[in-house]
Design a protein around this nucleic acid. Sequence first.
DNA 1: CAATTCTGCTTCATCGATTGAGCAAGCTTG
DNA 2: CAAGCTTGCTCAATCGATGAAGCAGAATTG
Lengths: 344, 344
Amino acid sequence: MTDTPGPGRKRPTIYDLATLAGTSPSAVSAVLNGSWKKRRISEKLADRITALAGEQGYAVNIQASVLRRERSNIVGMIVPKYDNRYFGAMAERFEAVARAHGMFPVMTCTQRDPELEFEAARALLSYQVDCLVANGATDPDRIADLCAAAGVRVLNLDLPGSKAASVTSDNFAGAQTITHLILDRCRDDLGYPGPLLFIGGRASDHNTAERIRGFRTAHAERGIALPETHILACGYSPDKTERALDDLPIALPPGLFVNSTITLEGVVGWLNRAVPDHAGRMRYGCFDYDSFAAQLPDNVGMIEQDVDGMIAKVFELIEGGIDTKDHFRVPCILRTPAPLPARS
Amino acid sequence: MTDTPGPGRKRPTIYDLATLAGTSPSAVSAVLNGSWKKRRISEKLADRITALAGEQGYAVNIQASVLRRERSNIVGMIVPKYDNRYFGAMAERFEAVARAHGMFPVMTCTQRDPELEFEAARALLSYQVDCLVANGATDPDRIADLCAAAGVRVLNLDLPGSKAASVTSDNFAGAQTITHLILDRCRDDLGYPGPLLFIGGRASDHNTAERIRGFRTAHAERGIALPETHILACGYSPDKTERALDDLPIALPPGLFVNSTITLEGVVGWLNRAVPDHAGRMRYGCFDYDSFAAQLPDNVGMIEQDVDGMIAKVFELIEGGIDTKDHFRVPCILRTPAPLPARS
DNA sequence: CAATTCTGCTTCATCGATTGAGCAAGCTTG
DNA sequence: CAAGCTTGCTCAATCGATGAAGCAGAATTG
């Protein structure tokens, strides 16, 4: 055996370090996990072991450590997709905040497949997570049951469930706010009094339902009649959106509430194709934020979900011990385009 | 102890199942990990145990399992960011392909911080990964050394290193292709012969350097002189981009090579602000793909990095045993806007 | 100076899954 | 019907880290 690193080399363990330091494995363990003061190890020995661990490139074996300990400090999250700004930001923030709390984050992506969702939850239980966050789960209650059977705490994120605490955006208030903004701009810029067209999403989807409720409420607050034809929950994809607009049974209102950035792609594509002279003659707003979409000229505002706020709430619940099944709604952030500077 | 699920309930182990089934833990283990045929357990007992495991919500304890086994089947990847389509897609694809190969993926995000990058690699070693993929690592060789010391295989992704095999996009060829496309469109649509302006990125960044080389080569192939002033590696952020354009020492060429979608945000913002009548009078292309950006009218094409191809190559190397330190360049995909349908 | 306390360690059982070795009962075979 | 094989299991050691319990030797106390 040489010191040359290579595939033949085994990772050092506390037993190796103990032999090298001429001491016992438990002394090494105590030093390396920080409990050495409590266990009355001398500072001299601690320093020697610490130095040796550095030289040898020692890294604790999490598997062994977790196996032995009562709590794993691992927190798991299932996420539908990463290739999307909203969930990507969620994943990133979750990880950062977990670390800041001294926990180990493990995430897994479910590809929006309900079956994979369940399997993913099971896989995370295998990792001995202390707590599982079900993000955007289509069947959160099934996951809650699974976790209950394993004695693991659960939290729903983005989509609420009835068997565990839930943290979601305040979709209702967000939708209400942006509906008012779009109506204002339609009135001020185009002289159009309403009603707007709601486009995108699935009516069975909890968040879409809440947004439709906010959309309706804003119209009602202004005394604007809103026919059923003005609500087009045609799915999210650009394709479906374009087809729904092709088949629109009414004349296209100049004001649109677009339910997601992916739907907005379809709207923009369709406008470019079917309404060549639309520029400057439409006003729309969109739920969810995308930096390119925010630059589109007739876009009057976007609703950004407060990812940091939601994750903060999640960890507040995790730390506090989740004894509630309440539904917490985190306010959204309205993003309006920066006013154009005066042109010379 | 009741059957009521709850936090007081402990997760069942093979010992619990063995007691319930009136058999031994090793029989249970053999059944649940699939080695029961080899270990001559009767199908009858196997079925009984499987059913019981289902009822009890059993999930194997990965920690214990990995601790005992020679190989963990865990593959780790460090990723700079998730909140970005390119790395988000990487993460998602890595996870899916790892599962398809019967491996357990674990990822961690490094926030583009070189120190975190190293810590993240160390954390993944703690998870006993069999193989580590360093994605977009700024100092891949340092990570390679760490892994070598632990006897763990490494692979570089997106940014190459010298101490391990590397898989990157073919930045040079991609840049060359799109440069030619932009030059064609400048000539055909605007009567402008070149040269183009290269904007965005850092010259010290390997990928930017390769793209600049492709950009230069395309110009040289056409005999177009390319002054140094036409290469503006001003960083990635929209802010820096806008400031660089404000301070441009030359007249803005009508053809631009934009080095990333995030830089493109800055370019579009600046054009909207500083060149009010730019519409239809510019031609640009962009390295990296974004669906909104693709809809911008003067965008003649985007270079999409072949995430699926790169991940496929990574797993080919992992499966094949990485005995090479070669650098594999995966061709990029040119995405041009769908031609507008004839208008009625 | 004997009794007690303190210091600085070491010993050993343990976590749950895995797996080589072993063993009893049933079945063949010559 | 004894020797040998097959079937269907069980036993027990093991992976690496942890921490309660224990144990010398030094220091303090009455």
